[in-house]
């Protein structure tokens, strides 16, 4: 069993010429094929003007630093515009890799549901017209 921080971002399309993004970071203890324990969940919202790779990395770093548990940051390939792992990892200030095992994929799926639901809820509650 080992701990990771699974991250997912929702909102990569423009609202009133800007991007309203919700990033969910989930610290989980996993095995190769399933999640054993959810340690902590952090959600942060961002208004961005652009969604370049560096912006995405900043969003992830800002959210993941609020997690109190250690662990490599893991995302889907598409989150980083399918850039090679080595290139992306070198831009992070902490360990990063793409999803590999079933356990890691399940964790990212969990993060994805959290970020998507949170964004939908916030858009609704704040009356932001998407």
């Amino acid at each position: 069993m080992y701990s990771i921080i699974a991250v997912d971002i929702s909102g990569r399309h423009k609202i009133n010429d800007r991007y309203y993004m919700v990033c969910a970071a989930v610290s989980v203890s996993i095995t190769a094929d399933h999640i054993e324990k959810v340690n902590q969940i952090k959600i942060k919202t961002f208004w961005l003007d652009s969604v370049e790779l560096t912006d995405i990395i900043q969003v992830i770093e800002d959210t993941a630093k609020e997690i109190e548990f250690e662990g490599t940051i893991i995302t889907e390939h598409g989150e980083m515009y399918n850039q090679p792992e080595g290139v992306v990892a070198s831009m992070f200030s902490r360990d990063f890799k793409y999803q590999e095992s079933l356990g890691e994929r399940s964790s990212i799926e969990l993060a994805h549901h959290i970020s998507l639901c949170t964004r939908n809820l916030l858009l609704n509650e704040l009356g932001i017209d998407s």
């Binding site: 190769a32 094929d33 399933h34 590999e100 095992s101 079933l102 994929r105």
Partner: peptide
């Protein structure tokens, strides 16, 4: 080995719904 295992996990993903795996 890692690459081949990742390919296998990739094929299993969203298909096996909690079936136990023995490597």
């Amino acid at each position: 080995m890692r690459q081949k295992l990742v390919t296998s996990h990739d094929t299993f993903w969203e298909q096996i719904e909690g079936v136990p795996i023995v490597t």
